[in-house]
Design a protein around this nucleic acid. Structure first.
Length: 489
RNA sequence: CGGGGUGUAGCGCAGUCUGGUAGCGCGUCUGCCUUGGGCGCAGAAGGUCGUCGGUUCGAAUCCGGCCACCCCGACCA
């Protein structure tokens, strides 16, 4: 007879998350579910984003949208269905996206003939260019600086919650310019915006740089990215910005008349970040107790937990708690009081740590006696007694410190796992160790060989990485400078 | 699409080898009790055992087909 009570006696074992060291993906999946961020849906690879997860996205949206407005962009909206024929106009674009688009084959109760079908947008360059063609007449109409908040769909082979889902939410910027220089400037400007957002808000350090030929966006002249390192030392592309040149303009006849009266194709850019950023956030900061979110993006800054044996005690504490919460709100913090009497404090501590609330104030009769509260900080899990009058100020300080420290910790981690490698053997030995700065002869063949044999891909050529000549670690041929290799999501 | 694995209660699983009344833990609900790190006690609800077929007096269990999902690769924000 098998032991049916194997789990008896270790009752709370199944409440604990798997640890990061044990199995990083399992830890990640469990965390996403248990922190109530997202669920799998019935459609393969699609996910349901729950309020706790969506609140993070809303905060991201708010900040990013402000940054886009500050750089002169306006929001607009374009259709979710794109005529198949649009997608087909840009050769590289359709070739690369065809395997992952969902196609509408029936509408109005009838099958659609081939050639009159629609695809569900995997990205909107084509349909937006159709509009741009109508909007642009003269050089006076330029630049056009548009952003769209939307959902897109890509039938990926291997979905992962937030990182790669069949349907995902994102913003896609699309711009038209009179000159190549203007378009390049825009591409790099928006890359800077992404860098700033990642580092200052997400507390995720990123490498800003240029993608290789083979890693470029289909249809782009140049692609740039920001690359982050997760806690398992794998790389995650957190945002991309593309200089599209005149490729789409030529396919859609997006032209303007110059001052000199000549017809010219516009120069374009596109750039985007998605709900993948939520995955990046989770995998950068969270620990074995659950989610950690930097204060600038956290749905909740503080939860006040009421402790007390008797109803009288609790009533007294509760009054103080709500007063404290009101003061915190006045100071601009997102705070709530948990006065649920059906659950014990221990349960609540564990629960809110799991869900990523930045700080916790424990308030009970013993504290009131001493005119204090206990402030617990999520990332370090330190508990500090604070005089009641000082709690609001201390909360503000703690949140600032947390924002700073999370970034520093992530940056130290990344730097500690970034290595210069100078030979094939070294590249191989360090394949799982993080970011590898290596010389590469610049050919797609060598790039592919490294990918096939070692599982390493080029991430980007960081602008900050000094380019000095050397020899390729794979072929011994000359190299213009080092590039970042890593295992990637 | 290649390689591996799993489908039994909301979740996690045992039972399958050796066929014989559907089980355990968590969660949920009710009542009492409890509150400084995932409380306690008592009771209750909840299942066409992924699906279709075969063998058998009898199938979660044996045989065959199908389907779905997960993990590891190739693709990708």
């Amino acid at each position: 007879m098998t032991d049916q009570t194997a789990s008896a006696g270790k009752k709370h074992d199944n409440l604990k998350l798997p640890t990061r060291a044990e199995n990083f993906s399992e830890w990640y999946n469990e965390l996403v579910h248990r922190a109530k961020l997202a669920d799998h849906s019935d459609v393969r690879g699609s996910m349901v984003i729950r309020p706790n997860g969506y609140a993070i996205w809303e905060n991201m949206q708010r900040v990013l949208d402000g940054m886009f407005k500050d750089t002169g962009h306006q929001n607009a909206y374009f259709p979710v269905l794109i005529p198949e024929s649009y997608l087909a106009k840009e050769k590289k674009h359709v070739a690369d996206f065809a395997p992952q688009v969902a196609v509408v084959t029936h509408a109005g109760g009838k099958p659609l003939p081939e050639g009159e079908r629609f695809v569900i947008r995997p990205t909107s360059e084509t349909i937006i260019n159709r509009s741009f063609t109508n909007w642009v007449q003269s050089y006076r109409d330029l630049p056009i600086l548009i952003n769209q908040w939307a959902n897109v769909m890509r039938w990926e082979m291997r979905p992962r919650l937030f990182l790669r889902t069949t349907e995902f939410l994102w913003q896609e910027g699309h711009t038209c310019h009179a000159t190549e220089a203007d378009a390049t400037e825009e591409t790099l400007k928006m890359l800077d915006v992404y860098e700033r957002f990642a580092e200052d808000y997400m507390a995720v350090p990123v490498l800003k740089g240029q993608k290789t030929e083979s890693e470029k966006f289909p249809g782009a002249v140049n692609t740039y990215s920001i690359e982050a390192m997760m806690q398992d030392k794998r790389a995650l592309q957190a945002g991309t910005s593309h200089m599209l040149g005149q490729n789409f303009a030529k396919m859609f006849d997006t032209m303007y008349q110059s001052k000199e009266g000549k017809k010219e194709y516009v120069w374009q850019t596109s750039w985007g970040v998605s709900t993948r950023l939520i995955g990046a956030l989770i995998m950068s900061h969270s620990d074995d107790a659950g989610l950690i979110v930097p204060p600038k993006l956290a749905p909740h800054h503080c939860v006040i937990i009421i402790i007390g044996k008797t109803p009288e005690e609790r009533a007294k504490v509760k009054e103080k708690a709500f007063a404290l919460a009101a003061d915190m709100k006045k100071a601009g913090h997102r705070v709530f009081v948990d006065d649920d009497e059906t659950k014990g404090p221990g349960f609540k501590y564990a629960e809110y740590e799991l869900r990523g609330v930045c700080t916790r104030v424990e308030l009970g009769p013993k504290d009131l006696e001493k005119n204090q509260a206990v402030l617990a900080r999520r990332d370090t899990r330190e508990k500090t007694p604070v005089q009641l009058e000082a709690v609001v100020a201390k909360l503000g300080e703690t949140l600032e410190a947390m924002q700073r420290d999370l970034f520093q910790k992530a940056k130290s981690f990344r730097d500690a796992h970034t290595f210069e490698v100078n030979s094939w053997d070294e590249l191989k030995a360090r394949a799982d160790d993080g970011f590898l700065l290596a010389h590469w002869d610049g050919t797609p063949e060598t790039e592919k060989r490294i990918k096939d044999e070692l599982g390493l891909t080029t991430r980007n050529r960081p602008f900050t990485l000094k380019q000095e000549p050397g020899v390729c670690v794979a072929t011994g041929k000359p190299s213009a400078g080092r590039i970042v290799f890593a295992k990637a999501y």
